[in-house]
Each structure stands twice: as C-alpha cells, then as structure tokens.
Simulated assay, not measured.
Amino acid sequence: MVCTGNICRSPTAHGVLEKLVADAGLAGRVQVDSAGTHGYHVGEPPDGRSQAHAARRGYDLSAQRARQLVAQDFTAFDLVLVMDGSNERAARALCPPAQRHKLRRLTEFCTRHRDAEVPDPYYGGGAGFEHVLDLVEDACAGVLAALGAAGGGRPAR
C-alpha cells in the first residue's frame, strides 16, 4: 500500500487488508506492508486521526511506522497498490521496467465505489477519513478476492 507520506491512506489500507487477511486465515501466506513515495514522516506512527477512525471500525494501526518506498519493494512484493495518480507517477519512476505489471491503483479493486483515487484526508475533517475507510474497505475486499482467485501465497503490498 503506497501513499505520499505513509501516515494516512496507506497505513489505513495496510491495517484493513491485514485484518481481512487474518480473518480469512491467510496471515501466514499473505504479507501486507505500506510505504510512502516521500520520506516526510519516516519512523512516525500513522496520523492520530487515521488511527482513531480506523479503531472505531476495528482496525489497529498503532504498531505501524512510516517508511519510504524503495525499488526493491517491486521485486519483494506481488502487488504495489497506490492511492492516486501522483503516487502512481512517483512509484513508476522507482519501478524496474520488468516489474511494472505489479503497480496498480488500489481503487481498481473496488466493487461498490467508482472513485478513481483514494483522496488524501490530511487537510480535511473526519468525513474525509471516513470516506478513505469506505473506499479502502471496498478495495481491500476486492484485493482479497483477487488473491483467492490467483491462489494467494506470495506477499502483497
């Protein structure tokens, strides 16, 4: 899961998919991680608002710490899921050409929502964080379904 600073959207998606994977009994087979395209917040926990909104829905983000996306992530993981066009461009610049098929937008996996991007809630209010959760829950359910269809088993980011 990849967003800009790895403190709002990508940790939320990380926490949601991690819980869905665990609930499906796949925790030993599917690895979930998150990173940011920029190193603004490396080592910091997720934004407190992200944590609070996620906790209300049963997701614990407290153990996560921000890190920056690196080129090796594209070989280590089967999927690198970005939140928006800006993140996609930044990730594509790091991505080895042979791994470009792994780079996708998280919203491609949505089944109920039609948003093309997961918007950054950082400068907004609580409704933005709730909208992120709505999109992320929808998309992560789609990711889990896709992993099941593909046989799962390798790490996914």
Rank of each mutant, 00 (worst) to 15 (best):
E18H: 08
T75G: 13
R57S: 09
L135N: 04
R154Y: 10
D138N: 05
T37G: 03
A13G: 13
V16C: 07
Y59C: 04
A149W: 12
L81E: 08
G48P: 01
V132A: 06
R65W: 12
N6K: 06
K102L: 08
A91G: 11
P155S: 12
A150I: 03
D47G: 00
R114G: 14
E130N: 00
L61H: 05
R100M: 08
G15A: 04
L61S: 03
V118S: 07
G5M: 00
R114I: 02
A22N: 06
R114H: 11
A156I: 13
D134Y: 13
R65A: 06
N6L: 00
T4N: 03
A27E: 15
A24V: 06
G58H: 08
A35Q: 04
G43I: 04
A54Y: 09
L133G: 00
R9M: 09
G43S: 07
A93Y: 09
M83C: 08
E44T: 03
P155W: 05
S10P: 01
A76V: 03
G124K: 09
D60V: 09
E88A: 13
Q68F: 06
L61V: 06
L133C: 03
V42F: 00
R57Y: 10
L61D: 04
L20E: 07
G128D: 14
A156D: 12
T12E: 13
D23R: 08
C95R: 07
N87Y: 11
N87K: 10
P155D: 11
L144A: 03
G39S: 07
D23V: 14
R57W: 07
A127W: 08
V143W: 01
I7F: 03
P45M: 02
F77Y: 15
L79G: 05
L69M: 11
V42L: 01
T12R: 06
C140K: 03
S62G: 06
L20C: 01
N87Q: 12
P45E: 06
P45G: 06
P96D: 07
L94C: 00
H38M: 05
P45K: 03
Y123D: 05
H38L: 11
G15N: 07
T37L: 01
M83S: 08
A156V: 15
V21D: 09
A55H: 01
R154E: 15
R114C: 02
A150Y: 11
G36I: 00
C95L: 04
A55T: 04
N6C: 00
R104M: 12
L103C: 09
A145C: 03
T111R: 13
D84S: 10
A150Q: 15
G128A: 11
C140S: 09
C110T: 15
L106H: 08
G25I: 01
V2G: 05
E44M: 10
C140G: 05
E44F: 04
A27S: 15
P155I: 00
H131Q: 15
A71T: 15
D115V: 02
V118F: 13
A52Y: 04
Y122G: 04
F74S: 01
E130L: 04
A63S: 14
R105F: 15
H41W: 02
